[in-house]
Amino acid sequence: MNEARHPLRLPGTAVLAALAMLFLYVPIIVLVVLSFNASDMTTIWTGFSLHWYAQALGNDTMLVAIGNSLTVAAAATVLATAAATSAALGIARSGGRVRTAVEGLLGLPLLIPEIVTAVALLMLFVLVGVRLGLMSVILAHTVFCIPFAYYPIRSRLAALDPALGEAASDLYAPAWRRFLRIELPLLAPGIFAGALLAFISSLGDFVITYFVAGPGATTLPVYIYGMIRTGITPEVNALSTLLLLASVAVVAIVFRSGTTPANQTRGEKTS
């Protein structure tokens, strides 16, 4: 158990790791601390205050933006997760080259620069005649959320004994009952994780949203960007902290509800 004495461990890695963690989290800590700053000046600390939270939460335009963000995230999550689940199940049943090709195509959007996807979607919407608004944002978010939702579901499915589905069919379950009673509950932790990733990705997206959002479809990140252009105020800090809190809360909730069924299936695999 004495990991410090591990023979393959290079000296100084602990220091490097600590520095890396610092680099990752210092900006966020600074942001959170400054959101409680009493001063108008973002970077000069004058005293503790909840003033900026009150101002942020009393800002109606911003509340609309939060509402838009949640609507878009919820809709895109449901659509993307459903699509990703169907894709995972479908691909699992096909084999060989088809599988490799489709999996590659599904994952590719993760590697495409976001700006390319944004421009492409904008062009497509204009070409097809989709009016830019909340709907176009939901469609766009669904598109880029599918790969995020897909991978956790697929890895969950890969760990599942294919004989379980066969056993259900063998015991007289038609395809849809087999899905509802066997595959869906056993995939639930993966679907949860996929939905969570999709939700967080949608909630935080700026680039694609900025391109495809029409008037009245301002989401929170787009709104915050707008605020920054007129000078960074501690209100932005307060808002960002709230967004961070919301994300962490969602992760915590899903992580808790997701762990129990996952452990059960893994225990069963020992036979």
Binding site: A163, E166, S169, D170, R178, T265, S271
Partner: peptide, 20 residues
């Protein structure tokens, strides 16, 4: 005829018990 319509049942090598 698909498996769910055959009055035949199987004991699988991995048992395939439904873990949930």
């Amino acid at each position: 005829t698909p498996p769910n319509l055959r009055p035949i049942n199987t004991v699988f090598q991995s048992y395939a018990l439904f873990p949930h």
